[in-house]
């Protein structure tokens, strides 16, 4: 009886998944095998692997890696400090509040901040450094992206750290481990799951960033997201756009599989 009613509750969710996840993905896969004339073709795929798209893929991965890396090395210490503060929920809220603001608005703000006559250059000037070209560089692109993704990295890490049993840390210290050893042997392994979740939440969207590439990097940085946007909106070559999209989906699935915790089910059962 109980399982039956539980299954009933699953119906809306199943419908949702079918209509808005499975069906669109199938459509995208279908389109990736369609040529401009509407017939079946493998041309999109051969084109993808033999042309500049491959180079585009490499550079997308490189930038996504940089963004994830910097977001992580900023977020982990921040989360660690947050858990030790008195009003941690308040501090956490302050970090999350910016993510309530539309991403485009934040990006536009950076156009002003990093401009030749913006506050950053004004500050440099008062320190006796001449104005620098900050906009439209790799630096500004990675900086703004990291800024945008930081809340997504901090949250899971913060949760993992917050759940960490403090007696474990005390025990480690009692048994003579230095604070570095405690961190390396106790704290980090126990929060690795949060780090993984954070990296997934940042790396995957970072792969397909597109507005920031134009606004902040002035198209000096091009990612696969830019190419998809162009194919759907400008050339209307939906086949090629879909091919790139399917490739990205596949890569993301592989990443999820490799970084996902495959033993989680077992471990949970043991704990229960």
């Amino acid at each position: 009886m109980e399982t039956k009613s539980r299954n009933l509750f699953l119906i809306p969710y199943a419908f949702w998944i079918l209509l808005f996840v499975i069906a669109p993905v199938m459509l995208v896969v279908f389109f990736s095998f369609r040529g401009l004339d509407g017939g079946f073709t493998l041309e999109n795929w051969t084109h993808f692997f033999t042309s500049t798209y491959f180079q585009l893929t490499l550079s997308s991965f490189w930038y996504a890696f940089l963004i994830t890396f910097f977001a992580l090395i900023i977020s982990y210490p921040t989360a660690l400090i947050l858990t030790k503060t008195k009003h941690k929920q308040l501090w956490l809220l302050l970090i999350i509040v910016p993510s309530w603001i539309n991403i485009l608005l934040k990006v536009y703000a950076f156009l002003g901040i990093f401009g030749t006559y913006g506050p950053v250059n004004a500050l440099l000037n008062t320190m006796g450094i001449s104005s620098q070209q900050i906009l439209f560089t790799d630096f500004s692109f990675v900086f703004v992206s990291v800024y945008i993704f930081i809340p997504f990295m901090i949250l899971p890490i913060f949760n993992a750290l917050d759940k960490l049993n403090p007696t474990l840390v005390d025990a480690s210290r009692d048994l003579g481990a230095s604070s570095w050893e405690t961190f390396r042997q106790v704290i980090f392994p126990l929060t690795a799951r949060g780090v993984k979740a954070g990296c997934q939440l940042v790396f995957i969207p970072a792969l397909s960033l597109f507005m920031i590439t134009r606004l902040i990097a002035g198209n000096q940085v091009i990612t696969l997201g830019t190419a998809i946007e162009q194919h759907f909106l400008v050339t209307q070559d939906w086949g090629m756009g879909s091919t790139i999209a399917v490739f990205l989906i596949a890569v993301m699935a592989v990443i999820m599989f490799l970084t996902g915790d495959r033993k989680r089910g077992l471990a949970n059962e043991k704990n229960v």
Partner: peptide, 14 residues
């Protein structure tokens, strides 16, 4: 320097 969209108005104006 960059390849941009509507923002060009703002960028050149500034």
């Amino acid at each position: 320097k960059a390849i941009v969209g509507d923002e060009m108005k703002m960028l050149i104006g500034n």
